[in-house]
């Protein structure tokens, strides 16, 4: 039968020579290889103590941003929810009262903002869609939880710490990414 394509490679199948049939040289060769691997650099790291640097484009958990004065950026425009292919984001808008100017940057804000982390695919489209630079993705992993409910992250879990009152935590949450970007 003619072959369908001409790409089939005919393997040379000659009987094994005596040395090959002894198998012992091959075994010793293999053992030498495994032995040499004992002294190679280990590929693993001690995880919680050491961490590998993330790539600058890594997309982790969402963070709702504040500006330098600690006001929330989000205006509840809903563009992120529209952009989200997994439909993970829900929000409710509310109007800013006069006494709340130190809390919210614009006159409209998100009274409720939830991201379902079980639905989220970490594509980063919300980040792209946001006109106010309010949502961005940090370099933390999604942590584990015992209930499904626990994976629906509400606003208090998503908001970044206040840079005015809680300077240190803000810096930590802001994370290594800034430093990395600066280094580049």
């Amino acid at each position: 039968m003619a072959s369908l394509t001409n790409r089939a490679k005919v393997l040379e199948q000659k009987p094994m020579s005596f040395m090959e049939r002894l198998y012992l040289p091959a075994i010793f060769k293999g053992m030498a290889i495994t032995f040499s691997h004992m002294f190679k650099k280990k590929a693993t790291i001690n995880y919680p103590e050491e961490k590998r640097p993330f790539s600058p484009v890594f997309r982790g958990l969402h963070v709702l941003n504040r500006d330098e004065e600690g006001r929330e950026n989000c205006t509840a425009c809903g563009l992120c929810a529209v952009a989200c292919p997994a439909e993970a984001i829900t929000m409710e808008a509310a109007e800013r009262k006069t006494s709340e100017e130190h809390l919210y940057r614009e006159e409209k804000y998100a009274a409720k903002y939830e991201i379902n982390m079980l639905r989220c695919i970490f594509c980063g489209l919300c980040e792209e869609a946001c006109p106010k630079d309010a949502i961005y993705m940090s370099e933390t992993f999604a942590p584990s939880n015992f209930t499904r409910k626990g994976f629906i992250y509400a606003k208090d879990e998503l908001l970044i710490p206040n840079p005015v009152t809680d300077k240190e935590k803000y810096e930590i949450a802001k994370g290594l990414r800034e430093a990395q970007l600066k280094n580049k």
Binding site: H37, M38, K42, A43, N46
Partner: peptide, 13 residues
């Protein structure tokens, strides 16, 4: 431990 070393890992530590 040796298995780990031969596979470029660290093993129980």
């Amino acid at each position: 431990k040796v298995a780990a070393w031969m596979q470029d890992r660290r093993g129980p530590n």
